[in-house]
Design a protein around this nucleic acid. Sequence first.
DNA 1: TTGTATGCGTTATCAT
DNA 2: ATGATAACGCATACAA
Lengths: 329, 329
Amino acid sequence: MAQKAGVSAATASRVLSGHSSTSEEARQAVRTAAAELGFRPNAQARSLRKTSTQTIGLLLPDIRNPFFADLAHAVEQRARDFGYLTLFGNANESQTQQDSYVDVMLSQRVDGLIAAPQGSAQDLRGLLAGEVPTVFVDRVVDGAAVPSVTADNTGGIADAVHHLTQRGHRRIGYIAGPQSTSTGRERLQAYRAAVAETGADDDGSLIYLGDFQSASGAAGARCLLDLAEPPTALLAADSLMSIGAIAVCNERSLTIGRDVAFVAYDDIEAFTLLNPALTVIAHDVHAMGRLAVDLLIAEIAGESPESAVLPSRLIIRGSTPSRPEGKRP
Amino acid sequence: MAQKAGVSAATASRVLSGHSSTSEEARQAVRTAAAELGFRPNAQARSLRKTSTQTIGLLLPDIRNPFFADLAHAVEQRARDFGYLTLFGNANESQTQQDSYVDVMLSQRVDGLIAAPQGSAQDLRGLLAGEVPTVFVDRVVDGAAVPSVTADNTGGIADAVHHLTQRGHRRIGYIAGPQSTSTGRERLQAYRAAVAETGADDDGSLIYLGDFQSASGAAGARCLLDLAEPPTALLAADSLMSIGAIAVCNERSLTIGRDVAFVAYDDIEAFTLLNPALTVIAHDVHAMGRLAVDLLIAEIAGESPESAVLPSRLIIRGSTPSRPEGKRP
DNA sequence: TTGTATGCGTTATCAT
DNA sequence: ATGATAACGCATACAA
C-alpha cells in the first residue's frame, strides 16, 4: 500500500489515522492508493500496538428474552456514540458459557465489559481481579466491587403485591426467578417481605422456583393452579415465564382478569395486546443500557462512577381487576 | 510469563497452544506460572500471526425483532460448536449503520460474515468483492454471488392468501415490509400473485408499505381500516408490524377473528396467547441460523456450498375463522 | 525437546 | 514533513 503510494509505511499510517502533520500531496497519494487497493487497516495490529481495542464486551444471559434484546440494543447504540464496537456474548443462562465468554472477551482485550452476571463472585474471578473495567447491568454479583445499573426490584415487586392485596387478593402465587441470579433472589425476597407486610397468605407452596424461561413459567403455573387451595393471583418474575404461565391459564380455560389476576415483571409490547392487557412492572430498559455504557466509559477513563438503581413502575391494566366475590373453578 | 516459568517464550507458546512436542516438566512449569500470573494469551497478537481470528461477524437488521433474536441465538450456538466467537452487529434497519459494521468487521478481520442485508449490491461492495467468506441469511442482495439461507417467502404468503380466500375473504389488506429488503419485495410480489391467482380484490389501496417496525404496523392498520371499503382480513409481513396492527384493532374495538381476520408473518410465542390465537406463517428459525453457519464454515474451508430455501408453514389458529355472513362496522 | 530469530501490520520515537 | 527503526505479543522455521 505504502509503496504503491510511493511513501513509507509511517507516512501512510499518519495519513490514514489523520494524526501528525502530512503534506497535501502525501495525503492525495495515500488516499488514492488506499482506495484503489481497497485497503483496510488491520484492527488487530493496531490494537496490538496501541493499548486499546475500541471494543467493549456485552455479556447477556439470554438474547431471546425481550428485556435483554432491548438492553443489547440500548447498549450497542450508546457504545457507538463513543466509537466503541460491541462484542456480544450470549451466556444462554449457563455458567459454563458465561465463563467461556468472559475468557474469550478478555483474550480479545476488550476495553471494558458490561455484564448481566449469574452465579457467585468466585465464578468471575477474572473480572473481579480488576483485569478490565466492568459494569454490571440488571444483575449483580455479591461481594464484587463493580459499579452497577440495576432496577428497583424490591420496589417493583412490593408495588405489585400491594396492588394485588388492595384488589382483594390474599393468595398470590409467585413464579420466581433462579436463585443463582441477584434479580431472582431480590425479587423473591421482596415478595416475601411484601406478603408479610400486607398480611397476605404466607404459604411456601405459593412459591415456584423457575429459571426465567418460558417453559418454567408454564410448569410453575401448573404447579400453583393444582394446589388444593390455588392462588387467586399470579405474579411472574419475568416476561418469558409470564408467557408460559399465561399459556397454561389459557389451556385450562382460566380467563386472566376474571378467574385469576396476573402481573408480569417486565413490560413487552405484546402484553398490551392481550385481552385484558397485562398489568406489569415496567422499567426504562433503554436508560439502563445507556447508563451502563456511560458508567463504563467513566470507568475506562479512570473514574469511579457510582452505581445507580433505576425506578420500577407498576402499570395497571386489565389483568388485575378488583377481586369479585365469586369463586373460581 | 515465560521467564517466570524458566523457559523461553517459544516453549511457553507451545505448551499453551498444545501444539508441538513439549516435556512434561515444561508443561508443569508453564501452566503453574500461567495460572499464578493469570496469564491470558492476547488474541490480537495471535490473530496477527496466524491468518485466522476464530471469529465470525453476524450482521442483523434489528435485534429487538424476535425473529432475529432467535436467529442470533441459533447462529451463536452453532458457531460455538466450531470454536468461533460471534461478533455481533445490529444495523438497526439503517444502511449507514450496516455499512459501518461491515467496515468494522472487515477491519477486525473476521473469518467470515453472516448477514441479513438490506439495500442493493452496491452498498456492500466490500463483501461482494469476495474480501471475506459471506453467507446471507433470511434476506439477500440482488446480483450477489453469495450463498444464502432464506425462507420460502413466496410459498408462505401464497398459503396465507389462499387460506384467507378459502375462508371467504376477498379484500385482504397487506402490510408490507420495506422494499429495500429482499424479503419485503418477495413477500409483496407473492401477495400480488396470490391475489391475482385467487381472484381476490386486486386493489392497490389494500397495500400499505411498512418498515418491519411496530409503529408502521399500527399506521398500516389505521390506513387500511380507514378505507371506504376496508379489508376483512389483514396480513402483516412480520411480527413487529403485526403487533402494531393488532394494537390498532384493539384500540378500535375490532375483535380479531370476528370483525377482522389476521395472519402474521413469523411466529412468536406471545401470538399463541392472544384470544383467539394468531394464524401465522412460521419457519424453523433455529435451522436457518444453524444452516447459515454450516454454509459459512464450508465456505471458509474453501468449498462452494449451495444456497438453501427453508419451507414456510402456515399454522392455522383462531384468528382466521370462516367468514361469517354478517358485516363489520 | 527447546531456544533463537523472524515476521505478522501498525504506530511511536527519533532522526533527518 | 517524512523515513528508518523498534516494538506490541505471539507462532513458527530452523538450528541446536
